[in-house]
Design a protein around this nucleic acid. Structure first.
Length: 517
DNA sequence: CGGGTGGGCGCG
DNA sequence: AAAGCGCGCCCACCCG
């Protein structure tokens, strides 16, 4: 499917044709050049796509899969190479764009087969489904109550100030910081704050909260509160709402309702996690979440996967003892007897193993991991070792790390080499876990999206790494909760078959996002 | 003056 | 300077 604008040249009503095909007996899998670019216009015209292959997203995944070997298309002995266009379906009398899309799609299909990675087809399908979800959620938006948001801001900051001024209470905090130092200064200026601490005889290297934590000076507390409030004001305050919250006309009632409409970037992170382009949807502070509210008569069903990454580490490593522990709702509590005795220690042991932490208790707790869960430990260790040497690692379904840069290889033989090598090792160590978690979530989204649509239960409105949120009529909330739990189960089976790993998604029916978690 | 970078901190 | 992963966003600051 080429871009809607250009498509009009040879199809006067693309959206209409799409609607017709989608309603037909055999639902197609559309080949799209770039759903993020092309799908919103179709949605606007009322044409929903059920299944697609997104060539742009697939290309990125494939090119990284292939980074370790010569590209398939220059391998002369490849029997497919010469037959590419012979296998092409009916010739198309369309713009060159269509021919190019078709060739690109066939090429990707051949390369996918050539890569011989069992999960790769599923990954490409899931990534493409993600593109649909992202566009649909971006269009739908998160239900958002501007009045509640305004009240939260006023309580925290004081009334909305005129342009160029700090809110009253924020200015009060700035004054407190200045008073504590005994002179005027801009608390937003690291340079000035650092100089002020030095003048007061406090020899800190940075003004990070964690470094100031152990500093005994009256400015510390005021500065901490100032920064918290300043962040809400600048990144999630009135100006943010003006830019990102729109009014939507409520179905039925005709009332207008606020909708926060971020722009999601599918696969924005190397690990396959999503990013956002403006709007800060993935960093919404807890302090403003109360403003995310269901419409009257509707509910939000918010669900998050507890300890997603360690559960996936258990699965991808095949560590039998750890897989058995995933039967528990709280993995950390379950593993505490084996990992340091307390829940908190078990958590540090697992997180440090996945992140490559060595400080404090971590080193010792990671040793416990090695002793008690050797297969899980070896999985992340070997990923780290591979990365340190410049090797490539993959997620369960085959998403591959970007190859190290030329600069990285050059640095390897220099003074800096040890540091960059260790850093790369921590990245690849974490990549296999975070990346597999991202693809589990993608599969979940794809399954849930279809189920919600087919049964008309509600709409996906938010996704955040290991959380999903559905907005639905109150009477559907129970069914939506069940659908979410089922989708999680099905996603787990899709990735891991009969392996007895458990990855529960816990739905909670709420009126406001602040009540979730 | 406008773009690029680093500090700092929000989220998972 | 997190001891340890992945991001985005804002501000101050620097440089051309």
């Amino acid at each position: 499917m080429p871009l809607p604008g250009g498509a009009a040249a040879y199809h006067p009503d693309l959206a209409g044709a799409v609607r017709e095909e989608e309603a037909g007996e055999a639902v197609p899998r559309w080949v799209v050049a770039d759903a993020a670019r092309d799908y919103p216009a179709l949605l606007e015209a009322g044409a929903r796509l059920d299944r697609v292959r997104d060539l742009r997203l697939a290309e990125r995944i494939l090119s990284r899969v292939e980074a370790h070997e010569p590209p398939a298309y220059v391998v002369a002995s490849d029997p497919d190479a010469g037959t590419l266009f012979e296998r092409e379906p009916d010739p198309v009398d369309g713009p060159a764009e269509l021919t190019r899309l078709q060739a690109a799609w066939l090429d990707q299909r051949r390369r996918t087969a050539h890569a011989a990675i069992p999960g790769l087809g599923a990954l490409l399908a899931a990534e493409s489904a993600g593109a649909l979800v992202a566009a649909e959620m971006g269009r739908t938006g998160v239900p958002f109550d501007r009045e509640v948001h305004d009240r939260l801001l006023r309580d925290l900051l004081g009334p909305r100030p005129s342009k160029g001024m700090r809110p009253r209470r924020l200015q009060g905090l700035a004054d407190q910081v200045a008073e504590a130092f005994g002179h005027q200064l801009n608390p937003d200026s690291t340079k000035q704050v650092l100089a002020a601490f030095h003048a007061a005889g406090v020899e800190v290297k940075t003004t990070h909260a964690w470094e100031l934590h152990s500093v005994d000076h009256p400015a510390v507390e005021a500065l901490k509160v100032y920064r918290e409030h300043a962040r809400v004001w600048s990144a999630f305050g009135w100006n943010w709402a003006d830019a990102w919250v729109h009014d939507a006309v409520d179905r039925g009632t005709g009332r207008t309702a606020g909708r926060f409409r971020p722009v999601y970037i599918v696969g924005g992170a190397d690990t396959g996690r999503w990013g956002t382009d403006g709007g800060g949807a993935l960093q919404l502070p807890h302090s403003v979440r109360e403003a995310i509210r269901a419409d009257p008569g509707w509910k939000l069903v918010a669900a998050d996967a507890a300890q997603l990454e360690p559960r996936l580490l258990a699965a991808i490593s095949g560590d039998r003892a750890m897989i058995a522990a995933t039967a528990a709702d709280d993995l950390y509590t379950e593993l505490a007897p084996s990992l340091g005795g307390e829940r908190g220690k078990a958590k540090i042991a697992l997180i440090s193993a996945m992140y490559g932490g060595t400080a404090g208790d971590a080193r010792q707790l990671v040793q416990l991991m090695r002793d008690r869960f050797p297969a899980a430990f070896e999985k992340v260790e070997s990923a780290a070792r591979t990365g340190e040497k410049g090797g490539l690692v993959r997620t369960w379904l085959g998403r591959t790390v970007p190859a190290p840069s030329e600069r990285w290889w050059r640095a390897l033989s220099s003074e800096e080499g040890t540091k960059s090598s260790a850093s790369r090792g921590r990245f690849t160590r974490n990549f296999i876990v975070q990346g597999t978690a991202a693809e589990w979530a993608l599969v979940l989204l794809a399954l849930l999206r279809r189920d919600l649509y087919e049964r008309g239960l509600g709409e996906l409105v938010f996704f955040l790494h290991d959380e999903v949120m559905v907005h639905c009529p109150a009477e559907h909330a129970g069914e939506v909760s069940a659908a979410i739990e089922r989708a999680a189960e099905e996603a787990t089976r899709t990735l891991f078959g009969t392996m007895p790993v458990r990855i529960p998604l816990r739905p909670k029916v709420v009126d406001s996002y602040a009540e979730a978690k």
